[in-house]
Design a protein around this nucleic acid. Structure first.
Lengths: 137, 137
DNA sequence: CTCAAAATCATACTTTCGAGTGAGTTTGGA
DNA sequence: TCCAAACTCACTCGAAAGTATGATTTTGAG
């Protein structure tokens, strides 16, 4: 929110300055109005470019969405459990996960069971879906 | 590619027209230069906005990516198989998928088997991952 | 240091998945 | 109309996944 205010304030100032500069430039140098018009035009286009880019950048980061650490803590999911969940969503079997993490399959199974109960899922596929929806993976 | 040429051509024409209009407007009506400056400034900003939006829109559709029908046909995946794959990725069991599609679990199993072989996956979780990566789901 | 949480592993048991095979029915396009 | 592909279903068997319980070791925060 603070950032929004700062950005809009800056943009407003820049816009006003641009208008003032281009107005006086045009009034004082009648013969070179072409050049100044082009320059101010380019500046305005650039301004539009940056404004638009700003909004799209914000949207973009929202739609890509990073891992929600807060929610992981809320769900009381541990580091190792999270790793297992990630590997599950990569399509690995319990045995493959065990080999990847250098632990036994039994241990993986106990991790998986805990993940399922914490995410309130009946199957690993459901856990994957829930994990994705919650931006945990 | 054709679209790109058309778009750039249009943009070029619009830019030139804008310059001409604003130039003559300014030269002929000295007293109202403020109004015309503002209008032309807004127009240029709008232009920058649309140009930027155009580029971002293209990027955006690429990153969000809709279902790749072409690839589905390439992989020879049928309608029903695709439905099953979708329900799998929603975390449903074979039995639940059967109830959803009003078919028996045996039929679901045969669909799943075909999906796995077509996607070259060893497990349903892997099929889900591959399907996501290929923008099939 | 201490203690709870996390991580590790095991064993026994149930359920779900998936492979393989075979076969009958629908359907959409040539 | 005819046929291949899609869809349907069944049965068996082995593999993978998941449950339940219990126990030991590590670890990290206070």
């Amino acid at each position: 929110m603070k950032r929004t205010i700062v950005i809009f304030g800056t943009i407003s100032v820049v816009v006003i300055l641009l208008f003032q500069v281009s107005k006086f430039s045009l009034m004082n140098t009648q013969g070179f109005s072409d050049v100044f018009l082009i320059i101010s035009g380019i500046l305005f286009i650039a301004l539009g470019y940056f404004i638009t880019k700003l909004f799209y950048a914000r949207k973009h980061t929202n739609s890509i969405q990073e891992i929600d650490i807060k929610r992981i803590k809320e769900l009381n999911i541990s580091k190792q459990e999270l790793k297992v969940l990630g590997l599950m969503s990569d399509g690995l079997s319990n045995n493959e996960i065990a080999e990847t993490l250098f632990i036994t399959e039994n241990t993986v199974k106990s991790h998986v069971s805990k993940i399922l109960s914490k995410l309130n899922a009946k199957r690993r596929t459901e856990a994957i879906k829930i994990g994705r929806d919650l931006n945990i993976i």
